[in-house]
Design a protein around this nucleic acid. Structure first.
Lengths: 338, 338
DNA sequence: CGCGGATATGTTAGCGTTAACATCCCGAGT
DNA sequence: ACTCGGGATGTTAACGCTAACATATCCGCG
């Protein structure tokens, strides 16, 4: 309980002396080695308590070669998606007894990612999760120079590493099919930045669904995930006569679209139906509440840790895994029958 | 460039042998010690390159007693505020050459916070930033058992540690005064959970502004930061006749309020003016765009690292600092003259 | 021509822990 | 009684690095 006020914090040897045993026995107690008399164990525990001893994990890591720290590389953890994913990763990692060291990149380019990887490898992490939603980031994973187990989240077919991701194509397809099933002739799309794999996947799903239904796919409008870009695309769409259904690549842009439509007097869903992507907490309270494709970021985070730990702990198996989390449709008031 | 494929990764001694110097000289090169002939330096660098050597920061930390890692304890990094703050912290820390280890708590209670603190202290972090927006979390900082420099973000008058925070009271006052200046007789308030210091501060500012203007403060409505709670409070307000101005304690709840008003046919800002708090990226595209109090989370993160590093590097000075970041009013279309 | 004091390098000794091996003790088996 | 085996403990040696001190080496100057 109490902490004795020595100048320097107590070390194992101090505890050993206090308990009248060798430092190795203290180590055994701490590591729950079976061959320790329970009486001795009690004495050691008491000494630990008395001196307020805490083991030095750095020294431990030096000799065991395991830091029990995982590295996470992510891009703009201010956005809901990455933030939720990282949160899920952190929770899962801690649950498994690992610390998490995070590097948040501003711009995700090859250099940035390799630097971050180096940075983490230097620090001696046992494994790394890279949230690599951009093609350029995924490519940086191609040539991992060191032997640290790595998992990519949303990393496409990236390099030689295991991947955990949400089925973006399926999500895009679901959104589009939902609109089609409501009787819309075709579906317009506001896409994310072209470097993003998620954006590509959603476009692909949207296009596939339209083709399968034998409909013409209009030219997708470009956005950058921000509400403003959605707003601008929305203004363009509002001025066009034949638009009755829009699939927007994320909820933030969808908000911008709704705003633009409201301003232009386009009623949603009476005149135009809108579907978003992500299901951020706000979506349910947009005007109107947004129909959207929900991504289970928490599950993605958890799975990525599972895969990573499997790779770390069963060191031998170099099996590259690929885990796909299905999205789901959340139907609200922004979509209606044509 | 290339990595020699030895079984075990090269260590300093290997580089030393390769370069024909002692390992200490290698260490000197790595630490940019001045007294090394530039020719020797070049030879060492070459050897490092050739062997693909990377220094072992764990061993380094063991002897220097500095891990160059900072711990961050936060609550629900899924929310925009905490996420942005943590992001700012991480950027600033990395800029200063530090790693960041994060623990995200689900519920912030005394036990959770102390556990997290222990956890980080065990890992040997050089300092800790606790994002402690709740009273209970702030209290947990009261009895810090170990000698790790610590800074609280949004920690109120917490314990014995330095604090960096946004002036919540001033923010609440600004929001209220803005509404009053538009000619509203009084201002209603939807507050955050009572355990949160930020919520308290905003209530205090709101109340102070009303009192100063000689107005009666109506009973504040309770929310929990979620859009849903705002929606429910909004429904209550919509049914009341004399409500013309509402100050909502965060933007997410304000969204719920706008939704409720829209549903009930209450027009914003014609019939009721609404002010939020935070200025999340979405606020500009609400219907109508939300007038709100902007918090500069990035600045808070940066300042907290500055204060922490000052504490770490100038070890002697135990000066407890208190740094307050001013909020600012962002005026948009959700407020209008009465 | 040798000596002082830089400057450049090498040598030694930890940092606090765990791994590996050595030792001690006690009860069982013959 | 005497060994043998294994449980409980102690001793020693790393782990890879930096700090501190020791040792060249070189230059200028009296």
């Amino acid at each position: 309980m109490g902490a004795t006020q020595g100048r320097r914090p107590p070390v194992m040897a101090d505890v050993a002396k206090e308990a009248g045993v060798s430092h190795q026995t203290v180590s055994r107690v701490l590591n729950e080695h079976p061959n320790v008399r329970s009486e001795t164990r009690a004495r050691v525990m008491e000494a630990i308590d008395k001196l307020g001893y805490r083991r030095n994990l750095v020294a431990r890591a030096l000799v065991t070669k395991h830091s029990r720290t995982l590295g996470v590389v992510s891009f703009d953890t201010t956005l809901y998606g990455p933030a939720s994913t990282v949160y899920g990763i952190e929770q899962a990692a801690r649950g498994a007894g690992y610390f998490v060291s995070i590097v948040s990149l501003k711009s995700i380019d090859k250099i940035g990612v390799s630097d971050a990887l180096d940075y983490l490898a230097d620090q001696g992490v046992d494994g790394i999760v890279v949230v690599a939603p951009q093609r350029s980031a995924a490519q940086a994973l191609g040539e991992l120079p060191f032997g640290v187990p790595t998992v990519a989240v949303e990393g496409g077919e990236a390099g030689d590493v295991s991947v955990v991701c949400v089925d973006q194509v399926r999500g895009g397809r679901m959104a589009t099919e939902h609109l089609l099933s409501l009787g819309h002739e075709t579906v317009w799309h506001i896409r994310g930045p072209s470097d993003w794999l998620e954006a590509e996947g959603r476009v692909a799903g949207w296009r596939a669904a339209l083709e399968q239904a034998g409909r013409q796919a209009p030219e997708p409008l470009a956005g950058d995930w921000s509400p403003r870009s959605g707003y601008e695309a929305g203004r363009s769409l509002a001025s066009m006569k034949d638009v009755t259904a829009v699939f927007v690549a994320n909820d933030q842009m969808a908000l911008g679209v709704l705003r633009a439509f409201t301003e232009q007097g386009v009623r949603v869903p009476d005149q135009v139906s809108v579907v978003g992507f992500d299901d951020i907490p706000e979506s349910e309270f947009f005007s109107p509440p947004l129909t959207t494709i929900r991504q289970d970021f928490g599950a993605v985070g958890r799975h990525s840790i599972e895969v990573l730990l499997r790779q770390i702990e069963g060191q031998g198996s170099h099996e590259r895994e690929r885990l796909v989390v299905p999205p789901s449709l959340v139907s609200r008031a922004s979509t209606a029958r044509r």
